[in-house]
Amino acid sequence: MELARIEKLLDAYFEGNTSLAEEAILRNYFAQNEVAPHLAAYKPMFDGFTLAKKEVSKQDVQVTEKQFTVRRWWYGVAASVVLAIGVAGFMFSEPKLTQEEQEALVAFEKTREAMQMMSQNFNEGAEELSYISTFTKTKNKILK
């Protein structure tokens, strides 16, 4: 490769005016060991680009998103089942009272009975009191 051409290409290269093919020529020129001394400063640049391209990713790409979506779908199902059970349980268990509530209900009934009995007796007692008013009337007739 004649030196003049390389120099010309190099100038164009730094102006951003070289084609990929021309850049390949430059890379190849600098890849060899004998480079003109006044161009030696550019060698690491082109060597660097060549070397940089050899670097590879060491990690495997994981696209196991399919399993992930399936699992996510199951989450949805599981959540709605739990919710359904919860709602159903709430609705069906409402009439059934707990032990404490049943006892409270019985106690309430007893108390009401007792209250009723008391008020009945009280009313009976009040009826008996009407005799007192008769007594008052009679007394008024006499003591007028």
């Binding site: 060698k43 690491p44 060597d47 660097g48 070397l51 670097e55 590879v56």
Partner: peptide, 22 residues
């Protein structure tokens, strides 16, 4: 850390310099 490139660069300070400039 990147050993694979490190080894190749070791012999060539100039190339490493280019990477650093970049």
């Amino acid at each position: 850390t990147s050993e694979n490139i490190e080894k190749k660069i070791e012999a060539n300070d100039g190339v490493q310099l280019v990477f650093r400039i970049m």
